[in-house]
Design a protein around this nucleic acid. Structure first.
Lengths: 337, 337
DNA sequence: GTTAGCACTCTCTCTGGCCAAGTGCTAGAT
DNA sequence: ATCTAGCACTTGGCCAGAGAGAGTGCTAAC
């Protein structure tokens, strides 16, 4: 048995299946690829690949289809991530220029990635964790209601209304805010809780109770923050790929809306040597996503994730290239602003 | 011809079609409804309804299906919006309690509405227009970069980074901010631009250029604000209704993502005497939404819109009731906080 | 190790026939 | 004048059967 050719056959099967969207047979393979052997030989190789669990035949008289395991081997051993075309790079640059606001940048990016790959694209908000506190604002909305605003040097702004147990006039609030700010400005957001606790002693005893309430609020802002948020685009592509394939999109849409699952998946994915992480079919470990693959990578200082969700049968090399390229541009833009 | 009975037949057709999801024939009608006449008479009525353009037969040997016009008559003349059940009211109350943040409230609301109706639910962010300026914050991020934050008494917080033409130290920025604030605090957001312009004269001549830049930024915040944003939930329901009906969901998903179209539609919809607005099929005047209906209503002080998007074949009375009830609760909650 | 040939299996598609649903029309009943 | 009963007619949906086409695995020869 010729091992290199066997892998070559697997590659051909994956590529043809992705392209033509139907099971591929031995005859079609020798016609479309210069394998240099006859279809009978290919058939032997295919039988071996099937024994290895890399491909399956939907039924006796149909061609073969890659399994999740087959895609995995393809991605790991047969794929090199090629750079984007000049036109794609150009589109990328011109679409991302001219955005200022973080929300805006992320939204444009995710749309771009979606168009580039014809898949659903998702991007996680940068986490506050490694950012530093730029500013803390506290505004009295009502005698017992305070709007807390936490601004990090990453450009993210978090806000939250807290209700406190006693009345707070403007001056008193300003004083507390100043104490908080001087204790934490320029320090990492992740240490905000500790820094605020340390400042408590220096406050007037009668202020400590309410100060603790505010500190808790700020702590929540810093901790939960936006790490649990994401932006998404291109859900319509799901329906389109569905039309010519049997992927029930309803559970997928549910999973996408139930962002918790997806966020966990994304953060668990570790990029390989090529800088991209790929989860194929059941590897996603979520039933509703069993027929989809996720390609993701980190971006920015704190390695927030950006990626796409698409049918298992997708063009992995091209998509991996697009994800990686977009992530790099995004990192560059965020670092520059 | 018996006019009241003719309408009664239309009602029966709409209700049965919504319920059983297939064209309804004269025989089935007399079996399922107490119309007191024979199927032959119903057939005459149905022929008349078809002449009026209220129903159509997909083909000769099938039953009839309501047209958009038929649904319109049904909604206008045959529907009374009944209140929610006790269980629904309870779910509503318990789900919406315990939310503080505006984002949180809207998100919970839209999910709730989606679950209640089994449709895609959308809610527009409250507009700043009629709200008043609670606070203005300006934070120097870099010598020439300023983060502007506009806080309205509606609880919305808008932020934006602007780049200015000259360096701004902290003190100078604080001074400008104070001028802006004192000129506009407590005044309607809609007048922010005018108020800021008025304060220019009182500034030092060397500050005016940069102050104008900041004022422009704040004006943008106030004007565009979040009126062009919306929250959405339940897109998975689209796919589900699709499975037993021929509604190509891809264009609908596109339209939902392209929020501009939907937002325009929503703001153009005027509620009728019952407090709900309904756009049926082609009435939405958007090709991609030609097979969907929209039920919406205003909420809160500034009449922002909340509603659902679903297939033309939907349970109008129940959905109208749910939309109206949720909008009322939402208004109540926003007024109370 | 590769190839050619061949029998076999299975799905897909097309066809014709039948059935059930539903209609419109006409003639008669109320 | 209105409703009803009956009936001929149309038509899509369903089923069985035939045939084609694709693809395989196996065997024997190169």
């Amino acid at each position: 048995m010729n091992e290199p050719r066997k892998l070559e056959v697997l590659r051909a099967i994956v590529e043809d299946y992705v392209h033509y969207r139907e099971p591929v047979g031995s005859k079609a393979l020798v016609e479309r690829h210069r394998l240099g052997v006859s279809s009978a030989t290919i058939r032997n190789d295919m039988a071996a690949l099937e024994d290895d669990g890399l491909i399956v035949a939907p039924h006796t008289s149909a061609g073969r289809v890659p399994t999740d395991k087959g895609y995995r081997v393809f991605v790991d051993q047969l794929t090199s991530v090629r750079p984007l075309s000049a036109a794609e790079r150009h589109a990328l640059q011109s679409l991302l220029d001219g955005a200022d606001d973080l929300d805006d940048v992320l939204e444009r990016t995710v749309r771009l990635l979606s168009h580039l790959t014809n898949q659903v694209a998702v991007v996680q908000y940068p986490q506050l964790g490694r950012a530093r506190v730029r500013h803390i604002e506290a505004v009295a909305l009502a005698p017992r209601q305070v709007l807390l605003v936490l601004i990090a040097d990453s450009g993210t702004v978090e806000q939250r209304v807290v209700t406190v147990g006693e009345d707070l006039d403007h001056d008193r609030l300003a004083l507390l805010r100043q104490s908080f700010l001087s204790s934490s400005a320029g320090k990492p957001v992740s240490q905000l809780g500790a820094n605020l606790a340390a400042v408590m002693d220096s406050l007037l005893p009668e202020d400590r109770a309410v100060a603790a309430e505010l500190a808790t609020g700020l702590g929540t802002l810093a901790a939960s923050s936006r790490e649990d948020r994401m932006v998404m685009a291109g859900t319509a592509y799901l329906a389109r790929s569905n039309s010519d394939f049997l992927l029930s999109i309803s559970p997928v849409l549910e999973a996408l809306e139930e962002q918790v699952v997806l966020l966990r998946l994304l953060s668990e994915m570790a990029s390989d040597a090529r800088g991209v992480a790929v989860a194929i079919g059941h590897e996603t470990a979520a039933d509703s996503l069993a027929e989809t693959s996720i390609i993701a990578t980190g971006y920015g200082r704190d390695d927030a994730k950006i990626g796409i969700v698409g049918p298992t049968r997708m063009d992995y090399p091209a998509t991996m290239a697009a994800v990686r390229a977009v992530a790099r541009y995004l990192s560059k833009i965020l670092a520059g602003s």
